[in-house]
Write a protein that binds this DNA or RNA. Structure first.
Lengths: 335, 335
DNA sequence: TCACTTTAGGTAAACGATAACTCTTCTTGT
DNA sequence: ACAAGAAGAGTTATCGTTTACCTAAAGTGA
């Protein structure tokens, strides 16, 4: 920058003004400087700028597991929103390990971030508290374990999704519907289950507790719990899972037992991650608008960073039923 | 920091020395300062440190598509290696879009990075040249479109993998093996094909050009090309794909046509991404050690950053055949 | 006891930009 | 024709650390 100033015979300040498109520089001088800047192929030193302006240009995303489904969908939305803002996205996975989580928190506070996106349904070392205490802007995406929070969150209409899924299966004639949930300490897992119950009640169908299995949103749950459901004396004719990874597990278990989908058993998932349309058969599922959620969350965060007030502290985007080929009437279903 | 200095009655310099564990401070003073530092719960300003030392603590990962398979496997390895180094990982997807790529490059040069990890088989705007010109350390992971490069790369023994896969199918008795490749301008796609040919030749089986389909490592390729393979007058009894995403597509196409795997047709993939074991049926595939590749690449980059010489400028980790349930003898196979 | 090294600590100049001011030099209205 | 204001450009302090260099006191050997 000093070089450019010297070459054009102006002060560093003036060059800075040109670079930042600030007023106070004549057009001729401006153009002259711009030319030299281009010739030098000059790139600003970010550290200095950061030091002076107190902004790092970085957004941190923390997530529990880097899985390739839910998380990737949301990341697409984030990347998209960040394209305009000029921020870079730092990604960190805690792997549900407390010490890793602590390490990250420590590092985040050490280094600096303009804001944080939390894809962490629950935390073990008080991340939200620390963030709140340090006045670091952040917004939480997706599942939560508390009904209300002191910080902005974005989610989707989980309860409605759960209700829609169950209702759909019932409308197809299913009377015994298995459900594989997420961990029930999470609000959103409980919401799916509550909706499942509500839909049954509405239809006048009693809920058999044996059909309710708790999982951890992992593919493995799907396999394991499907087997236990099938081992029941009166097994279900349909299975509703808490997310698509679990549904994939169900597919796997049913394959092992040589049961066809949807003729033998219907399966409905939750999330509508990228690959669901490509499963064999394509999975009927409740779509969460992952991209949009990521995008919205990022916009909210950006507003927060710029000190603008949020329209609303908690936003829920709507879920929807995506009908593909994994659900059918039960074999002996009476409608 | 100034506060701490004042409180302990020493200069800022001394505090800095303590913080950085440098000599030149008495033990008593050192301890006294350390206590105050802890009490203040002091966190260093990263920007200033960065400005002074010229290190940002950031590593950038650029990839073409955020897909959730190959990329996520590698990211796991990277995260793992980065845990010790104290760097944060910035992720950016170009989405194969030239302007996005340019934008990123611009931004990367603007801001600062300690080093770059390239998960980009080819680039449209001369990223490697720019990086080389700016003396930014980087290493490229995986596929490439040139046989040799002026920069460090890490890959796996693709050719061997392709050979092993083909040989395995042949050993099962297959004589007509379809292959769905990646884009053939990529070295590594050609390697698979060359190996496929070599294995045929070795076994004395002529290669039918009709069985060779070019794809783009996308799931959709798998679907589309499978259909065209099946429409052949003499369709293949096995299909070898360039990656696991394509294999998933093959599964989908075969499901549509109601052909069972492996009884109707055998399928073998490439990569061994996280979900392959969970497919129905579990996919037999050529494993690339993705985690290890990510880890190695990161270690190489870290060495480069620290100015240490690299043991080798190009490393290939070994691929291996993972036999699961998607391959069997052809129906009328004679062994 | 004196010259010399070691040790503990401080001073001040960077690092590369930004921003609040100040100082000229033109305009412009009356 | 003159005071007031605007516009162009420069001065200088500052952001929070690190580091090269300096000083003074204490330790050391002959």
């Amino acid at each position: 920058m000093a070089q450019i100033a010297q070459e054009t015979g102006v002060s560093i300040t003036t060059v800075s003004k040109v670079l930042n498109n600030m007023p106070g520089v004549g057009n001729q001088t401006r153009e002259r400087i711009q030319k030299v800047v281009e010739r030098y192929d000059y790139v600003q030193n970010h550290a200095a700028r950061h030091l002076r302006k107190g902004q790092s240009g970085l957004i941190d995303l923390v997530l529990m597991r880097l899985e390739g489904g839910y998380d990737v969908g949301i990341m697409h939305g984030i990347q998209d929103a960040l394209k305009q803002s000029g921020h870079r996205l730092v990604v960190f996975a805690t792997n549900e390990d407390e010490s890793t989580e602590r390490l990250w928190l420590r590092r985040l506070l050490d280094q600096s971030t303009d804001g944080v996106l939390l894809l962490l349904p629950y935390e073990q070392v008080g991340i939200t508290d620390a963030l709140l205490a340090q006045h670091i802007p952040f917004v939480a995406i997706g599942d939560r374990n508390e009904p209300t929070t002191a910080f902005p969150t974005i989610g989707s209409t989980i309860w409605l999704g759960g209700y829609t899924a169950t209702e759909y299966l019932i409308s197809l004639g299913h009377r015994r519907i298995g459900i594989i949930t997420g961990p029930l300490h999470l609000m959103t897992s409980r919401a799916r289950l509550a909706a499942y119950r509500e839909a049954h009640e509405r239809a006048g169908i009693p809920v058999d507790p044996a059909l309710i299995c708790e999982g951890n949103y992992l593919l493995g749950d799907g396999i394991q719990q499907t087997h236990s459901l099938l081992d029941l004396s009166d097994p279900p004719t349909a299975i509703f899972t808490g997310n698509d990874a679990q549904a994939t597990g169900v597919y796997q278990a049913l394959y092992q037992r040589n049961i066809s989908i949807p003729d033998g058993i219907s399966v409905i998932g939750f999330d509508d991650v990228m690959y669901t349309a490509q499963m064999a058969p394509p999975l009927t599922t409740i779509r969460q608008p992952l991209m949009e959620m990521g995008k919205m969350a990022t916009h909210m965060l950006l507003n927060l960073i710029n000190g603008q007030p949020l329209d609303s502290n908690h936003i829920e985007l709507s879920t929807s039923l995506v009908i593909r080929n994994s659900c059918a009437r039960p074999r002996n279903g009476s409608l």
